[in-house]
Amino acid sequence: MGRLLYAEDYEKGARHDLGSHKVTAEEIVTFGRTYDPQPYHLDEEAGRASSFGGLIASGWNTAAIWMRLYVTTLLPDAAAEGTVEGSPGVDELRFLHPVRPGDVLTGTCEIVASLPSLSAPDFRIIRNRGRLLNADGAEVLTLILNARFRCRPKNS
């Protein structure tokens, strides 16, 4: 862990590469069985019979992939945490293209705003525009994540 980063360290317009993740059929089916048991998330043959033409990941699986990349890349050195009210949440979540086994998804995050927290004065809300792109450069997911980051302590 490096230097602890506070809300003031996340400037509007800053862009972050979150790395990549290769999607597997096993991951798609496991997630589908557990959280979104629609036929085209569970079985290649059922997927072929659907309008998708094959096995595809749940949109929620895709969102979880972006979140994993965000947490493991951007948060290890961050003073980010929820307060007793919890996380401010996600806006504008979009599933734009099907994600298939073998797809390599690359995540990005852009800081679009830093707002005072109305309920916790020692925190700011950092609005992040998240994106996942496939190897062809097509956006498969976009979202706006509102995350709470602790403000720099007055004595530091």
Rank of each mutant, 00 (worst) to 15 (best):
V23I: 12
E26K: 15
I28E: 00
V29A: 05
T30S: 13
F31R: 03
F31S: 04
F31D: 06
G32F: 03
G32M: 04
R33D: 06
R33F: 05
T34V: 14
Y35T: 10
Y35N: 13
Y35I: 10
D36V: 03
P37R: 10
P37C: 10
Y40E: 08
L42R: 08
L42P: 02
L42A: 09
L42Y: 13
E45D: 14
A46E: 14
A46K: 09
A46V: 01
G47Q: 03
R48E: 13
R48H: 11
A49I: 01
S50Y: 11
S50T: 11
S51D: 14
G53Q: 07
L55E: 07
I56N: 00
I56C: 02
A57I: 02
S58H: 02
S58F: 00
W60N: 02
W60M: 14
N61Y: 15
N61H: 15
T62Y: 04
A63D: 07
A63I: 03
A63W: 03
A64G: 14
A64K: 02
I65M: 12
I65C: 05
I65L: 13
I65P: 03
M67H: 15
R68C: 05
L69I: 10
L69V: 13
L69A: 06
V71P: 02
T73Q: 07
L74W: 00
P76M: 07
P76D: 14
A78L: 11
A78S: 14
A79N: 07
A80P: 07
A80G: 06
E81W: 08
G82I: 11
G82K: 06
V84G: 12
V84N: 14
E85H: 13
E85F: 10
S87L: 14
G89E: 09
L93R: 05
L93K: 05
L93Y: 09
R94M: 12
F95T: 01
F95N: 00
P98N: 11
